[in-house]
């Protein structure tokens, strides 16, 4: 079989069901980091295996965390300072007796930290990589695009963790809210982080220009701020639609509930599910956009 014939077959049947010749078994299994046996067809050389998703994801994530170590201090605290400032401001305005509003302000400010890092900064990062032609680095490595997007998104979500904890704890103390349900912050930050990072990555990779990616990331963060902190019943007409469309809303609702004595678990689970579904959709879209972003550059 010629390589051309192989291509025809592989396109119709998908990669794994390849014809393999006897020579095609080496190269795999370098500490288990690769997937599939090396393959060959008559007239073409041995094709080394791709790197598996898991090891690729871990390597991207570890690399991004190492990046963060250099820029950690500003990254972690700029996000938290913004939210702390908003809470202090509103503490002077809001009546602490109004528990619904207090919950909403603290939960909204906490999720805003996630939005700042995962949506805004990640959109800027991918926009900058794309504009510089630096995505070529990832696109010429034998790794799935989803590992690049997920690994980077996960690292940015990790950067948001200290800021969210600080914001939630300080907020609860400021507004006299109970801290007992705060463990819910863990799934909220993870799933809000994943869904907002998916949006951020998709914006960065799909925006036609770097400046547009930056602007879109900032607008996205402002929307999260607006519909996240203002209680739903006080939003202007029409903004409620926006509120329902933004995944951060669901994260804010769960976190606001966490400050109440009794939590409606079914509603919380449903809200978290929405975040998870949005995360899957946007991260998939971003992974597809990564390949397209490389190909579109002249």
């Amino acid at each position: 079989m010629t390589a051309a014939a192989y291509n025809a077959i592989s396109q119709s049947t998908g990669e794994p069901s390849l014809a393999q010749s006897g020579a095609g078994q080496s190269g795999a299994g370098q500490d288990g980091g690769t997937v599939g046996a090396a393959v060959t067809v008559a007239g073409a050389v041995l094709l080394p295996p791709s790197t598996r998703f898991g090891p690729a994801l871990r390597a991207v994530y570890a690399g991004q965390l190492a990046r963060g170590r250099v820029a950690r201090v500003p990254l972690l605290f700029v996000a938290a300072f913004q939210s702390l400032g908003i809470m202090l401001l509103l503490r002077g305005v809001v009546d602490t007796g109004n528990e619904t509003t207090s919950e909403q302000v603290v939960a909204g400010s906490t999720v805003l930290v996630v939005a700042f890092v995962a949506l805004n900064l990640l959109a800027q990062r991918f926009g900058a990589l794309r504009a510089a032609g630096a995505l070529d680095y990832y696109l010429t490595l034998p790794i799935p695009g989803s590992a690049v997007v997920l690994g980077t998104a996960a690292s940015y979500a990790s950067f948001a963790v200290p800021g969210t904890v600080i914001t939630a704890v300080v907020g609860a103390l400021l507004f006299d809210l109970p801290l007992s349900g705060l463990w819910l912050l863990l799934p909220v930050a993870a799933l809000a982080g994943a869904s907002l990072a998916g949006i951020g990555a998709a914006i960065g990779l799909l925006a036609p220009r770097q400046e547009l990616a930056t602007v879109a990331g900032q607008v996205g963060m402002s929307v999260v701020l607006f519909v996240g902190i203002i209680p739903a019943d006080r939003l202007p007409a029409g903004a409620n639609v926006l509120r329902d469309l933004v995944p951060s809303t669901y994260a804010v609702d769960v976190l606001a509930a966490a400050f109440r004595p009794s939590v409606d678990w079914a509603a919380a689970a449903a809200d978290l599910l929405v975040c998870a579904v949005v995360a899957v959709i946007t991260l998939t879209a971003a992974s597809m956009a990564l390949r397209r972003a490389g190909n579109a550059r002249g």
């Binding site: 291509n7 396109q11 007239g43 073409a44 080394p48 791709s50 696109l139 490595l141």
Partner: peptide
């Protein structure tokens, strides 16, 4: 190396290493 890479753009990364002109992806490391 015998493979039609216009049809299979996933193949070059498995066979080759590429040095492009931009290294922004690595700049902070």
């Amino acid at each position: 190396l015998g493979w039609d890479i216009v049809a299979r753009p996933d193949i070059p990364p498995r066979l080759a290493a590429y040095l492009g002109q931009a290294d922004t992806a690595l700049a902070d490391l």
